[in-house]
């Protein structure tokens, strides 16, 4: 009996096309731990983040907005618990929200012109995107939630007033950063393995 006769319409489906052959090949790149490709980052604990947040708040109260922003951008949490990462995002959002719109551009230019400034603005873009990605304003998510049915006009749980305000702050910061650091900072954020 030939093999062909054993086929039924079920076995002749296209299912084989979706088999992930890479997963079955031991040598394949998908079975390769990509984390070994990048240098290890120092781990930052939540306590350290909180301590930094305290210092940053002090700087803010003292009116040193550049120092406050620079302070949190120089220590991005690449390697840490989700709690630490979210806490640091909160600190940065707090700083961003406390800076006036008219001060943004001169502040960013001064950071960009300083030593390591390009890197600092890349970090800022990462946090802006993280903030937009749903971490904005504590637990409330800004992303549209499934509301079931046609509820475009009803007030959605996500679009609360403070969340919308936080988003508009992030959008205006995003615009200003790209003006200063160019499209390069966006490509770097998309490319970079070091996620915040």
């Amino acid at each position: 009996m030939s093999i062909i006769q054993q086929h039924t319409s079920a076995t002749l489906s296209d299912a084989w096309r979706t088999i992930d052959i890479d997963a079955l090949t031991e040598e394949s790149s998908v079975n390769f731990d990509t984390s070994t490709l990048r240098p290890p980052q120092p781990e930052i604990t939540e306590a350290e983040v909180r301590q930094l947040a305290g210092q940053v708040r002090q700087l803010l109260r003292g009116g040193d907005t550049e120092g406050a922003l620079r302070g949190c951008l120089d220590t991005p949490v690449y390697n840490g618990t989700d709690g630490a990462k979210d806490a640091h995002l909160q600190t940065i959002l707090e700083v961003l929200q406390s800076i006036k719109a008219s001060e943004m551009s001169p502040l960013l230019k001064s950071i960009y012109g300083s030593e390591g400034g390009s890197e600092a603005l890349d970090v800022l873009v990462k946090y802006i995107y993280k903030g937009m990605g749903g971490g904005a304003n504590g637990a409330s998510k800004v992303t549209p939630q499934s509301t079931g049915g046609f509820s475009q006009f009803a007030s959605r749980p996500g679009t609360t007033e403070p969340a919308a305000a936080a988003m508009s702050v992030l959008l205006s910061w995003h615009e200003k950063v790209v003006e200063v650091a160019g499209l390069g900072c966006i490509t770097r954020t998309m490319t970079d393995w070091r996620r915040v």
Binding site: R38, T191, D192, W193
Partner: peptide, 8 residues
């Protein structure tokens, strides 16, 4: 060699 952000 690789650079900091490890882009391809």
């Amino acid at each position: 060699y690789l650079n900091n952000s490890a882009g391809w």
